[in-house]
Structure formats: C-alpha cells, structure tokens
Design a protein around this nucleic acid. Structure first.
Lengths: 332, 332
DNA sequence: CTGAAAGCGCTTACAG
DNA sequence: CTGAAAGCGCTTACAG
C-alpha cells in the first residue's frame, strides 16, 4: 500500500491533514500537545515527507544545479566542492553532475535538471553543441552562470566569470624571463579553445615585448601530455623554461624530466597554472599562477544566490584577479 | 503567471490535456498530425516538463543517490565517475553529494535525498553518528549499499562491498620481502578505523610469518602526511621499505624523499594502494595494489540496479579481488 | 488552535 | 485516435 501520507498520519493522530501539514512546517500555531501527538504518529508509521508533492504546490524548490566538464581534474573538484559548500550554507541543495567533456551528455543532464525544477545553474561547460545545452535554459528562463569557460556567446543571458587567465600567463612568462630564461615554451592546452588562447595570450605578449620567439606545444591538459612535452623538449634541447597550461601538465613535465635524470628547478624552469592543492606538495614544489579557485567558487555561489533572491543579474563578464606564487620549480 | 502547463499547451493546440500528456510520453496512439500540432504549441509557449508533478502520480522517480565521503580524493572521484556513468546507462539519473567526512552533513544530505524520492542509494560513508544517516534510510525502506567502508553494522539491511583490502596488504608486504627489504613500515591510515585495520592486517600477518618487526606510522591518508613519513623515516634511518595506506601517501613519500635528495626505487622501496590514475604517471611510477575501482564502481551500480528492479538483495558482504601492479617504486 | 475545500501539474484508466 | 474525470501528496487561504 505504499508509504504513509499525511492523511494516514492525521488519522492515526486524530487530527486533520492540515494540522499535520502545519506540524511539518513547524508552524507556531499548533499546540504542543497536538504537535507531539502528530510527531509520535509519524514516527510510528514511518512517515516520509514527500518533497516533490510539497514543491508542486509551493513552487520554490531550493535546488541549484552544478554542472562540471571534468570532475576528475582536481582544479574542478576544488571548485565544485567550494561551490557546493557555499550553496548549502545559503540553505539551498545542490545537485552536481559530471559531463566528462561530452556536450550531448551535458545537454541531457541540463534538461533533466530543468525538469527537476532547479532554481538556477552554475555550469563549467564542455565545448561544442552549445545550443543543445543553452537553448533549453533560455527557454525555461533559468538563471545560469557560465564559469571558467565561455562557451555560449550570450553572456547577456548567461553571464561569464573566470579568473583573469591572460594576466596569469603574462605573470608567468615575465617571471621566467626575470629569472634568466632564454627560450620559453608554452606547454599544453588544446588548440583553438578560448581558455588556451587566453592563457597563452599573456605569454605571447611578454615574449614579443622581449623579442623572444614563442614555442607552443598544444595538447591535452593532462599529466600524460606533460611527460610527452618533457620528452620532446629534452630531445630538442632548445628550451630552458616553460609556462604550462595547467599544473597537471607541469607535474607531468616534472616527472618526465625526473625519469630522464633531470631535475626541474635546476635544469629547467617551470611555471604551472591553477595552484591546485598538490602544487605545493610536489617536489620541487610548483611555481604557479594562483587562481584562488575555492574563493572563486564561493564567490560564484554567492553571485548566483543574489541573482536568485533579488534578481540582480551579474555583469556579463567578470574576471577575478590571479597572482603568481613562486616556489621551487622556477629555480633561483 | 508562471510557466505554461499542459493545459496551456492543450488550449493552444486545440486538444485535450490528456492528448498532450500522451505526446509527452511518445505514445504511439496519437496521430502524427496531432503530435506535430502539440509539439509546435509546446515550442511556441516555451513549455517545460514538470517532472515532480509527473512523479507524484506515477511513483517511480528513476533517481539514485551517490554519497561520497571525500570527493577531492582521486580514488573516490574515479569511483563516483564510474558509478554515475553506469547508472546513467541504465536509464536512471544520479544525484551525487560530497560529505567531506562530516557525518552530520551526511545525515542532512541523505535526509534530503530521501525526501526527494531517490529509489536507492550507494554510500561511501563518513565515520561517526551512523544512526543519524542509516536510521532514516531504514525507516524509509530505501535500498542502500555501503561501499568501500563498513560503518553501519547492519549489513543485513545495508549490504557492504569493498575490494579485498587485507589480501592487498599481504601482497604488498610479501612483494617487498621478495625484493629484499629488511625493515618494512606501514605508512598512513587513521588509527582505529576499519579500513586502516584491514589494509594493515595483511601487512602484519606477512611480517609475523617472516619474523619481522612491524613499524606503523598512523596518520591522515594525504600527500602531506606522506611527506612527513619520509622525513621521519629518513631521520630514523631504520627502514628500507614501506607499504602505504594509499597512493596519496606513497606519492607524498616519493616527493619527500626527493626533496632530501633521495630516490624512491633506488634508496627506498615503496608500494602504494588503490592504483589511482596518477600512480602510473609519477616518477618513479608506483608499485601499488590495484583495486580496479572503476570496475568496482560499475559493479556496484549494476548490483544496485538489480536490487531495485528484481528485488534481489546483494550479499551482506562482498569482497572483490585485488592485484599487485609492479612498477618502479619497489625497486629491482 | 483546528478543519473542510481547492488546487499545484501531471498520469491513468475509462469511455467513446 | 481523443476527451472527461479522478487522483498522486502536499500547501494554502478561508472559516470557525
């Protein structure tokens, strides 16, 4: 006969179902005596609140969606964790999903979230098929923020925010030059993507200012590609430093050099990007561009909450400051 | 006036709301002509399906909860990703949540999932306050599996499954002895926890069989603690090998030794535990106990699906086989 | 402080 | 192939 409902509880407690509903909502207008009777009846029957039914009547679901392109990457994991904590403190529930860089999985995921009635969305989108994901969001009129990657051009509808990648690339390249690097590579980042272009832009600008030739090794933002870069650079022998697309690539390069008997920080200068937790723990510890991803996540959560509560739509584009953290990998 | 409903769509398309509902369900008993009219009306009005309302009538929600104690740890991230993929292939949606080892956050999270009507749950639980989490699950009668950690003793209600940690510890210790290690430490793992005890049990047994004295360094399962272990061991100088609680500790030890000019695999033999993706990428690559966590995740998802669909409750306890992967960190 | 009634947006038999 | 009616489990005014 299925789960007990408030009607069953009402019968057992000898009250009307409205009274049960009031008890559920902790209304002060129920006498203590009655409240207790109802509570006891609920416990005895094993009553389970049906939130879907409640939401149906009262609209606000208090649910926020968090969609992430690659949850296995610690950078995104840190971001997601920070967002979720901040949202839960604001009294909303979060439903997170990993799309694994698959735009059609992303479209299905977002559609499901819309149907489940999320009040708002934070999405670090996968590249490709943006209409499949953002079209339904637009039609449903759900406040949604693009973070870390701008995939939809409609930033008027889907405001975009990310750390200031370009100036991070600039800081990294300048630092290496200051340390005496003569030939600096840029390692990792898939060609043609906005993030890659932005992280690379600062590097290219600084090199041009210093009359240095760039050398770009495009590839996936993974440890495995970092190792590949170490191999290529060690063989070619033309570079003495690199700005990496992210810390994962940098860590891969560190272990690639190590496996050839090289030591980053002594034989080669390296700056990473992101400052994931591991960056400070590795040997040598990574000099890297700190994006303050936890703080960024909190900020995004608060921005979305503001949008949901007072309707204050965020700026179409927000860039948060980054800074360089100097550790061992860039040498003396 | 809020979002359009099937009634608005019906009006716009000039049909009854039942017909709209049938179109929504792709029923074959609607004429193509009508179906198209309805579809067009939905598009024009920006109709959004309200799944909560639908579920209210038809019970099955098709939602599975996945609760993880520490999503920042790559071992759990790999597990969660595998589970989610397998569940989505089975046609269910997953809602994942990170409890960050906080049992009361876990209790709130699980309560929210119950209210949202999840059909079943897979939980890698935080330690402590188990009644707050498992009590409500029992009362609601929701099929739930404990994985990776046994926290509730009621495995008759909440079947438990994990890789066979004890034999992993045995394999690791025996391998180090075979390679000529004379004094083997066990590094990492919080004292008193079941996982620690299990992973350590095999190690202790093998050492006893070989008349060797154990040396246990308890601590958090993190890179940072691994570095600490390297420092302690290098100073004391009494060990030449270690079985680590997990790969994170092992990787921390590798970088700890490196920062002192030591090289794991040459000066010290190390075996990790879990075989996270990074284990094969590091230098030296980690010898480690492979738990096959992705396959384990898939298997758990399928087991839960079986429980939900045919009511076949899993065994109270399942242990999946592990194997040793030999790489550079345990030397020649 | 409590009860009777209407309604949230769907689905589900049941007629036709 | 389509429509009218009842009902899913709650909340929300409105009386009393």
């Amino acid at each position: 006969m299925g789960r007990p409902t408030i009607i069953d509880v009402a019968k057992a407690a000898g009250v009307s179902k409205s009274t049960v509903s009031l008890v559920l909502q902790n209304s002060p207008s129920v006498s203590d005596r009655t409240r207790e009777d109802v509570r006891r009846a609920m416990a005895e029957l094993g009553y389970v609140y049906n939130r879907a039914a409640a939401n149906l009547r009262s609209a606000q679901v208090g649910l926020v969606g968090l969609v992430i392109n690659d949850l296995k990457n610690p950078f995104f994991t840190e971001f997601a964790t920070a967002v979720q904590m901040a949202i839960s403190e604001a009294g909303y529930a979060t439903v997170v999903a990993n799309t694994d860089e698959d735009p059609s999985l992303q479209a299905r995921t977002v559609a499901a979230m819309i149907e489940h009635g999320v009040s708002g969305l934070i999405i670090s989108p996968a590249y490709g098929e943006e209409d499949e994901t953002f079209g339904p969001l637009e039609r449903a009129g759900i406040p949604a923020m693009q973070v870390l990657r701008r995939v939809s051009g409609r930033t008027d509808l889907f405001p975009f925010a990310s750390p200031d990648y370009a100036s991070g690339g600039r800081l990294a390249a300048q630092h290496l030059i200051d340390r005496g690097a003569r030939r600096i590579a840029f390692a990792g980042g898939i060609e043609g993507r906005a993030v890659t272009a932005e992280r690379m832009a600062g590097y290219l600008a600084v090199l041009a200012e210093n009359g240095m030739e760039p050398l770009v090794l495009h590839g996936r933002p993974t440890r495995a590609f970092g190792r590949e870069c170490a191999d290529r650079i060690a063989v070619a022998g033309e570079c003495d430093a690199a700005v990496c697309f992210n810390d994962l690539v940098a860590l891969g390069m560190v272990s690639g050099f190590a496996s050839r008997g090289g030591l980053v920080g002594r034989d080669f200068r390296l700056v990473g990007f992101d400052d994931i937790e591991e960056a400070a723990q590795s040997f040598p510890p990574l000099s890297t561009v700190q994006c303050g991803i936890s703080g960024f996540g909190q900020q995004m959560a608060q921005t979305l909450m503001g949008w949901l509560r007072d309707g204050t739509k965020p700026e179409a584009e927000t860039r948060t400051p980054v800074r360089l953290v100097v550790r061992g990998s860039s040498g003396e």
